[in-house]
């Protein structure tokens, strides 16, 4: 029995049919063609599939798509505006904080959520917030610097 689900994805109303045991990650990638959200493990251990569910950071591999009824999702495709990258995206590029880039979509979403919740994160807070976003290329150094730099820039822009 397929479930019919009405939700909002990246600000747009979206309706889809899914199986009851289908995950949000599967629906995003396979039914909505939003392949920016990546699957690294399927068990919530790597963070590559991070999305915002009603503004809360979650692993989309650990959410049933059927739970989305009436709720909203933001994916990496919904972070930048048509005019400009989000400061997190811009700073990740300036700091060369990605090598292969597979973890980057999850890092972008998680870092945006961090700064939204805590505009002035310390290094330790940034590291613990991002502990669920595995990166095997960078050793995290440049990611942490980029995210803190983005937070600083956003504070500067709003003050």
């Amino acid at each position: 029995m397929k479930q019919q689900v009405s939700s909002t994805v990246n600000g747009e109303p979206v309706e889809f049919l899914c199986a009851a045991d289908e995950t949000l990650l599967e629906v995003l990638r396979d039914r909505l063609s939003l392949t920016g959200t990546k699957e690294g493990c399927g068990t919530g251990d790597c963070g590559a599939c991070s999305v915002l569910l009603d503004d809360r950071l979650v692993c989309s591999c650990l959410v049933f798509a059927a739970e989305l009824e009436g709720r909203s999702v933001t994916t990496v495709e919904g972070i930048a505006t048509p005019q400009a990258l989000h400061p997190v995206q811009q700073k990740l590029l300036e700091h060369a904080a990605l090598q292969c880039g597979i973890c980057t979509p999850g890092v972008v979403v998680a870092a945006k959520a961090l700064i939204d919740a805590n505009p002035e994160p310390t290094e330790e807070e940034t590291r613990y917030w991002l502990a669920g976003n595995l990166c095997r290329c960078t050793g995290y150094d440049k990611i942490i610097r980029a995210v803190m730099d983005a937070a600083a820039e956003m504070r500067g822009a709003t003050s």
């Binding site: 919530g44 963070g47 991070s50 809360r56 979650v58 650990l62 961090l114 669920g132």
Partner: peptide, 9 residues
């Protein structure tokens, strides 16, 4: 329990 992402759920 788990990461920030897991904490959300």
């Amino acid at each position: 329990i788990g990461s920030t992402q897991i904490q959300g759920r």
